[in-house]
Design a protein around this nucleic acid. Structure first.
Ligand code: SF4
Ligand code: SF4
Lengths: 151, 151
DNA sequence: TGAACTCAGACTAATTTAGTCCTATACTCA
DNA sequence: TGAGTATAGGACTAAATTAGTCTGAGTTCA
């Protein structure tokens, strides 16, 4: 529970990838899917959704593909998640389909809404550019990590 | 997605209820379930789990039931959620069962772990006593740690 | 034209969550 | 002591959500 869907996960990966390759003209869904071993058709749908929501620009036809519609600094994780999975509620009250029928007697709805808002705020403050790897301490020892680049 | 399970939800309600009725000796699962119209057997299991995790004290037999094992101020929403649903990960990497097989190539795992940690921190700072209804009160907003500020 | 794309929706499969059932055990009080 | 009320716990089914597939379009461009 309290888990991101894989679709949102894939979407974030794709956007990060596009941000890293901002120079190149256009990357196809297939390109990105292969880079990360994501099911290509699934990623295609995700990118389509992101395009519809205005986060990406698409280009059909040969050598077509996707590119960010804004700078990576201007796209928040929250937008991505919402575009893919719809509005974010940690409670089941307002899922759209099948509202929790305890809403009348429920007393924690409102306090949890505040927690919800905090999480949204947190995701809003997390931008695609923040996902970019400038602290690669995972695999091979990074060459020359300066103090400046860490802070 | 990013939704609390109803079980966790019910658990929080129950704990809040117990906190409100701290004076009374012992409230049975049935009592609480009826107060909120929660399926009694389901709530029973939840309370059992919370007892096993040490958040509640149980008392079998007539006029038995449950009571908080600590003050409401000392129990965080995070503990409740973890007790009921297990460890909290927003990504699917480490669910225990069926790890995401992209872990090798995935590049957003680590940044998302930081987001995860922020959410955990937020929930850790939300206590049962915070759910109690002091409407209008301006509580100290839980600290927001953004990725950017984590540098 | 046709290869390489995006776009869209319906569909199925897999997984997770919600809720039930049934039995055993513990405690209390008359 | 034994009837009644409660917790404890496992196995099970049902419902909902998520993941992924398939099919058939419409675009672009060389
Ligand atoms: S109404 Fe109360 S119980 Fe129902 S989903 Fe909202 S918070 Fe959870
Ligand atoms: S490995 Fe990457 S893709 Fe797989 S779950 Fe973790 S974050 Fe999401």
């Amino acid at each position: 529970m309290l888990r991101l869907t894989k679709k949102a996960d894939y979407g974030l990966m794709a956007l990060k990838y596009l941000a890293e390759h901002a120079g190149e003209p256009s990357l196809s869904a297939k390109d990105i899917a292969e880079a990360y071993h994501i099911p290509p058709q699934l990623l295609a749908k995700i990118l389509q959704k992101l395009t519809r929501e205005g986060l990406l620009r698409s280009h059909a036809g040969m050598n077509g593909g996707y590119s960010l519609s804004r700078d990576a600094k201007e796209i928040s994780a929250f937008e991505v998640i919402r575009a893919i999975d719809g509005p974010l509620f940690i409670t089941s009250c307002t899922t759209g389909t099948s509202t929790c029928d305890l809403t009348a007697s429920c007393t924690i709805k409102e306090p949890l809404a505040r927690v919800n808002e905090s999480i949204v705020e947190l995701l809003r403050n997390t931008r695609i550019s923040d996902l970019l790897d400038h602290s690669g301490r995972e695999e091979a020892p990074p060459e020359l990590v300066t103090i400046a680049s860490v802070s």
